[in-house]
Design a protein around this nucleic acid. Structure first.
Length: 259
DNA sequence: ATGGCTTGAGTGTCAAGA
């Protein structure tokens, strides 16, 4: 089973890239963030024609998350249970025995801002919910744009970014709270190239200079982590005309051992 | 240099991203 996550920064603009990427990579499930549309503008038919059913939690202009899957997903949840939020950042579904949680975590804008406080509250609510979710489903995969670079090696210039948004200690502590629940950063289970990033600013030719951050992640519950045979960042679509500023992250999961 | 691009909204120019 191949699962993936990609912040597309507007699905209307990026649909051709998404369709090409689905055809080339053939994932069983793709989690999308920043679709930036309500259902009315969502390309259900084009994705269906490509062999993917879509679950969408949409919003006009901002946010919006979706799960594209070959098989029909079950037990769909939209939004963080028990957390009052007008922003559409969560969609979850069960597929092939795996509980997929697609998340677009808040950006936070600046350390100390109202949006930063919201980010930390949102992350705390996510951890509380996932703790309960792990009791119900041992095989949980949390995929998405975390807007957190968990360690200095995930940052092109750790000195410049020290303490800044996406890298601050409270954000990194929120990430560690997830790994303390038993989640494993799939990417770090394997040897990776140095300076591996998943996001590059549109400005300053940041991609060409590889001035990026690794903020898009696939976290696997311990029961799932043992089935993961590979995890990679696919920089190919970042090189296209009018790219998303994020690259997809892909994980391969072996079939479960027969009981 | 609190900039630089890109998107959506809406038709002038701003909010937001990260």
């Amino acid at each position: 089973m191949k699962i993936a996550t990609w912040n597309v920064n507007s699905l209307k603009v990026r649909l051709p890239h998404v369709l090409d990427w689905l055809a080339a990579v053939q994932p069983d499930a793709l989690c999308l963030q920043e679709t930036k549309t309500e259902d009315g503008g969502f390309p259900f038919a084009a994705l269906e024609a490509a062999g993917y059913r879509a679950l969408h939690n949409g919003q006009k202009t901002y946010n919006g998350v979706a799960i594209l899957a070959r098989d029909g997903p079950a037990d769909v949840v939209r939004d963080l249970p028990g957390f009052a939020d007008t922003q559409k950042r969560i969609i979850a579904a069960t597929l092939g025995g795996v509980r997929l949680v697609c998340a677009y975590m808040p950006n936070g804008q600046a350390v100390g801002s109202d949006k930063y406080e919201y980010k930390l509250r949102w992350l705390a609510a996510l951890a509380d919910w996932l703790k309960a979710e792990l009791q119900r489903h041992p095989h949980v995969a949390l995929l998405g744009d975390f807007n957190i670079a968990p360690e200095d090696r995930d940052v092109h210039d750790p000195v410049a970014w020290q303490g800044q948004i996406l890298c601050s200690e409270p954000e990194r502590a929120a990430f560690r709270r997830l790994t303390d629940l038993g989640f494993v950063d799939a990417f770090r289970q394997f040897e990776q190239p140095e300076k591996s990033f998943s996001w590059w600013d549109y400005r300053m030719m940041a991609f060409r200079r590889n001035q990026g951050l690794r903020i898009d992640h696939i976290l696997l519950s311990s029961a799932l982590a043992g089935r993961c045979s590979a995890c990679t960042i696919d920089k190919t679509p970042r090189k296209l005309e009018r790219p998303s500023d994020h690259a997809p992250v892909v994980a391969d999961l072996a079939d479960p051992d027969p009981a």
